[in-house]
């Protein structure tokens, strides 16, 4: 029962990700795509240090290591 709840919850989250991305790609959509959100986050910098870029790269690197190397 709890296992089905967890699977259902993660599937719902994945479907929501796909749904919002689909909505963002419609003509005249007011929802930015996930790529645009990431690009906006990556603009953040403290002085000359691209904190947003380093943070997002680091997160994605860790995610790949977590799922694909261990």
């Amino acid at each position: 029962m709890m296992r089905a709840l967890a699977i259902g919850g993660f599937l719902t989250a994945i479907l929501l990700f796909a749904g919002v991305e689909w909505a963002s790609r419609r003509e005249d959509s007011r929802v930015p795509s996930l790529g645009d959100v990431c690009a906006f986050v990556m603009r953040y910098a403290v002085g000359p240090v691209p904190v947003g870029r380093i943070g997002l790269f680091g997160f994605w690197w860790w995610l790949g290591w977590h799922f694909l190397a261990r």
């Binding site: 989250a13 994945i14 929802v31 603009r43």
Partner: peptide
């Protein structure tokens, strides 16, 4: 990159929060 996000960006909080 976009200079600012439209208010519709809050929709991304929905899948992120559920996950």
């Amino acid at each position: 990159a976009p200079r600012r996000l439209t208010p519709g960006a809050v929709w991304w909080l929905l899948p992120v929060t559920v996950f």
